[in-house]
């Protein structure tokens, strides 16, 4: 188990007796970037929710860093973070207040210095004194990413990481995430409908369909096995 950051074992989730995740198992290696693909309603958000401890599984177990999430939640979550355009930060606080707040919540040491470095890297210094609620969708995405990196997570979960960003900023963010992952030997799990982005960033994918894994593994290998040239072709046929 030590070679893996995530071990999902026979995970099942039903909402009101409706199966949403149907007995899935997979592993995510240390130092890797994995894409979770699937159409709307495939179970991606539910799966992310269970990996973050936000949703209690009906059956099965989630192990992160080799420890059971159920019984080691606080310890695990201090080394994990998450970013999604569908999850906001407090709107009535400035960006700086938000970053301070989350730094304290994650127990980040010397957080002034950490924030300083991150806002410089992400080029968001000019937004620090602005109210989070007054920012554009693209600016919020960058701030959310900054918040997600505050605790230097060993495991980073990203939901549509470049949503609402212009092409130039999207490329910048992708490059930044790839560098971050290499530099910190962390693992990143990405859900995205932007298949070009997934293909550019991820080494492996997990393809979900109606709560089941229909395909998982190395992207090149999967495309070769199924005889597809691109992820889009695979997604349209198998997803």
């Amino acid at each position: 188990m030590n070679n893996y950051f995530i071990n999902v074992v026979n995970l099942i989730k039903n909402f009101d007796d409706q199966p949403v995740i149907k007995n899935i198992s997979f592993n995510v290696k240390k130092n890797s970037i994995v894409g979770i693909l699937g159409k709307n309603g495939a179970g991606k958000t539910t799966l992310l929710g269970m990996l973050l401890g936000l949703i209690t599984p009906t059956k099965g177990d989630v192990y992160i860093f080799g420890k059971n999430l159920k019984s080691n939640k606080e310890e695990i979550l201090s080394e994990v973070n998450f970013q999604s355009p569908y999850v906001d930060l407090p709107k009535k606080m400035t960006v700086e207040q938000n970053l301070f707040f989350y730094s304290r919540l994650y127990g980040v040491k010397n957080f002034n210095k950490v924030i300083d470095t991150l806002v410089n890297d992400l080029k968001i210094n000019n937004l620090l004194k602005k109210n989070y609620g007054s920012l554009s969708a693209g600016q919020k995405t960058k701030i959310n990413l900054c918040k997600a990196l505050l605790n230097k997570p060993k495991l980073l979960l990203l939901d549509e990481p470049t949503a609402s960003l212009d092409p130039e900023t999207s490329i910048f963010i992708r490059k930044y995430l790839l560098e971050y992952q290499k530099k910190n030997s962390s693992s990143i799990l990405i859900t995205s409908h932007n298949l070009n982005e997934v293909q550019a960033m991820c080494s492996n994918i997990i393809l979900l369909k109606s709560g089941e894994i229909v395909s998982q593994g190395n992207i090149k290998q999967i495309l070769k096995n199924y005889n597809y040239k691109t992820l889009i072709e695979l997604f349209l046929s198998e997803g």
């Binding site: 973050l52 401890g53 936000l54 939640k73 606080e74 310890e75 979550l77 201090s78 994990v80 973070n81 998450f82 999604s84 569908y86 999850v87 906001d88 930060l89 407090p90 709107k91 009535k92 989350y102 919540l105 994650y106 127990g107 918040k147």
Partner: peptide, 18 residues
């Protein structure tokens, strides 16, 4: 309620807070 209104519950509950 402010946590709910600002859609901040997710971020709060994925942090190590007890």
């Amino acid at each position: 309620l402010e946590e709910i209104w600002s859609r901040n519950l997710t971020n709060l509950f994925i942090s190590p807070i007890k």
